[in-house]
Amino acid sequence: MPYDPAMVKPMKEELTRIGFRELVTADDVDRFMGEAKTGTAMIVVNSVCGCAAGGARPGVTLALRHETKPERIATVFAGQDVEATARARGYFGDIPPSSPAIALFRDGRLVHFVPRHMIEGRDAKTIAWDLVAVFDEHCATLKK
């Protein structure tokens, strides 16, 4: 059963207010990934878990202040937007589902994935530093 929308709203807004596109249906995901066939794109699988997502959201927020970053950013909410999350995971290939998680695509191909266990217990700055290194490696196009 999905979470109470009122409970997850502020957790969603932590990302949507900095420019993340909220994907709530499978069609939303397919549309986003269709647009991401060229260039770089990131999908953040958001979640209610304070142990991990509580660090992931501010970590991603910090990382996106970096000059080099993905051209397109979107988010699905695990346990809430179930259909969209399942469809997004379909684009992650054989990677086991976890949330929160972060997927980076270049020209529609998954080039980096941060599973939950690489997020949990880490502070926002550490998560951000790792993401910035990934952005520098894969996001050649600069978008501010």
Binding site: P10, M11, E14, S47, V48, C49, G50, C51, A53, G54, R57
Partner: peptide, 8 residues
């Protein structure tokens, strides 16, 4: 923000 269970 999120769910925490500090006693676990």
């Amino acid at each position: 923000m999120g769910t925490f269970h500090a006693d676990s």
